[in-house]
């Protein structure tokens, strides 16, 4: 592509020669779509300048005071703000870590499912356990709301009839075990779906490996351990690296729907915190600062994961 990029031909030539003008025509066809990418993915980078101003709601950037690195300094020098950010980082990292720890579950799920002999059972399990992946977090919350409702929810009914608790407990308006609860909800939603990739990986393992091992007298568990597991590990490793790259990117939707004043302290992850202080608290500039730092750290983590992948697998992930 080099010759195209340093193409210094005068415009008249470009019009006369059909071949060159086709280059630009192709680009022209693409340009409205590229413009959309520019507007919605690149232009937001310009929003970063808000981190260096003191923008108040209702005021434009131009009527705002330039404050330099004030917001960055306040991250470390203002004790209340530092404490807040530390709390939020703790939530973010705790839930990401739990996410990484549980990321082995889809692998186990896939290996166990391929051990099921009934094709029909296997198919139905796959279809039905994938369903929760396709509903929105709002609906997941609605389901949680319904199942955990204090006076009509099935969970409270069961707990009371088993004698585990005397009265209905409002599980959603509670601050305890939030990290674990959030991890369990994302497992409920994502486990079946997450396993599909591994099931595909397992089905592409050479059948001869199994046959050869069987001839050598390997039992079912040895086959799983020595052939199936190593067979899916490369796939798992790539996804693991990607989850390292996304370590502080645990999203907003799930925590947004589940948050309430009671669990706010332990559910606020970075994105949610930024939303809460930026859009609800109207501290645009500080929210932008945190948002910007988060993006920069994410990029660094991605490069780190990519480098790690290159070192270990000899192949990059991006």
């Amino acid at each position: 592509m080099k010759p195209v990029l340093n193409n210094n031909l005068p415009k008249s030539v470009a019009i006369k020669s059909g071949r060159i003008s086709e280059r630009y025509r192709l680009f022209l066809y693409a340009s409205p779509l590229l413009l959309l990418v520019l507007l919605f993915s690149y232009l937001p980078l310009y929003g970063w300048v808000y981190a260096f101003f003191n923008v108040r709601p209702g005021f434009s950037l131009f009527s705002s005071e330039f404050v330099g690195l004030k917001w960055f300094r306040s991250l470390v020098s203002n004790p209340t703000q530092t404490a807040e950010v530390v709390r939020v980082m703790k939530n973010t990292m705790a839930m990401s870590t739990l996410g990484i720890v549980t990321s082995i579950f889809p692998v186990i799920f896939a290996i166990l499912l391929t051990e099921i002999r009934s094709k029909r059972f296997k198919k139905w399990v796959q279809i039905l356990t994938t369903l929760p992946n396709f509903i929105s977090w709002v609906l997941v919350f609605s389901i949680a709301f319904m199942l955990l409702s204090v006076d009509s929810g099935i969970i409270n009914k069961i707990m009371i009839s088993l004698g585990i608790q005397d009265a209905g407990i409002n599980y959603l308006a509670s601050d305890s075990y939030i990290w674990l609860k959030m991890t369990l909800w994302s497992l409920w939603k994502g486990l079946g779906w997450g396993a599909i990739l591994y099931i595909a990986a397992i089905s592409s393992i050479d059948q001869e490996l199994y046959d050869a091992a069987k001839v050598d007298g390997a039992g079912r568990f040895r086959l799983m351990w020595h052939i199936t597991l190593p067979g899916v590990m490369p796939t798992y490793f790539v996804l693991l690296l990607l989850s390292i790259a996304n370590f502080i990117n645990n999203g907003l939707e799930q925590y947004y729907v589940f948050q309430n004043p009671i669990n706010k302290n332990s559910i606020e992850v970075l994105d949610l915190y930024v939303y809460n202080i930026g859009l609800l608290g109207s501290n645009f500039s500080f929210a932008t600062t945190v948002s910007m730092l988060k993006s920069l750290i994410s990029i660094m983590l991605l490069f780190f994961a990519n480098r790690l992948s290159k070192l270990v697998r000899g192949e990059t992930i991006i």
């Binding site: 195209v4 192709l26 988060k294 993006s295 991605l302």
Partner: peptide, 25 residues
């Protein structure tokens, strides 16, 4: 033959891996 094909392709693909952050957006 598209002008700057590789560049524009990367221009699009890179957006998969980074975003400016929700507030700047």
């Amino acid at each position: 033959r598209m002008w700057g094909r590789k560049f524009w392709y990367r221009f699009v693909v890179v957006t998969m891996y980074f975003n400016a952050g929700i507030i700047p957006w």
